[in-house]
């Protein structure tokens, strides 16, 4: 979905409010296949790359904007990003599929700016990196976990006040 009105309509159909918004970046589909397996040497078509990147980023941004008023009425006020460990700019050793990985990095940044903006009003955030190994807890389990938070403590003394990406074994993956 990239049409703002379509997104608003879809979210409004959820009712007065909801608790959790789950975001993800599609791995493949459509034009993305034209870039599959290509390194910087392999004649990447940057116009296709831009189309995919722009689609993914704007889709996430518009969905979040439409959802915020409804999340405010929910109890959890939770925004979730389903991603994978190759979204880590620091750690990834990927050489191909630029559109997917650049989109994942962009989605991480969107989560961070959302966190900066909405955490002070009580929103909570989860980033789950699925490494495909079926080990540990699932995304569904993780997104429902409560992280340590004591309102009267120092801000830094709380896991809920940090935006972290974790895998199924709850290992933190650097951004």
């Amino acid at each position: 979905m990239t049409d703002q009105e379509q997104i608003k309509t879809a979210i409004a159909q959820m009712g007065d409010g909801f608790d959790i918004l789950i975001l993800s970046i599609p791995e493949w589909g459509g034009e993305a296949d034209a870039l599959r397996g290509k390194t910087i040497w392999d004649g990447i078509d940057e116009s296709v790359l831009l189309d995919i990147l722009s689609y993914n980023v704007n889709n996430v941004l518009q969905t979040v904007r439409a959802a915020i008023p409804f999340l405010r009425k929910g109890a959890l006020k939770r925004i979730v990003l389903l991603t994978d460990p190759t979204a880590s700019i620091r750690e990834t050793d990927e050489e191909t599929d630029y559109a997917y990985h650049m989109s994942q990095a962009a989605a991480g940044m969107i989560m961070k700016i959302l966190f900066n903006t909405y955490r002070p009003e009580g929103f909570t955030f989860r980033c789950y990196a699925d490494d495909g190994r079926r080990a540990g807890i699932s995304a569904c389990e993780y997104l429902l976990t409560e992280q340590s938070y004591i309102e009267t403590d120092d801000y830094i003394h709380s896991d809920e006040n940090r935006l972290v990406m974790r895998d199924g074994l709850l290992r933190e993956i650097s951004w």
């Binding site: 990147l53 700019i89 630029y98 650049m102 940044m109 969107i110 903006t117």
Partner: peptide
């Protein structure tokens, strides 16, 4: 807390540089 476009463009740049 705003300027999503600039932030995501630089994060995407950093990822491309890493790759």
């Amino acid at each position: 807390k705003n300027e999503y476009g600039y932030g995501v463009s630089k994060a995407a740049l950093n990822m491309s540089v890493r790759m």
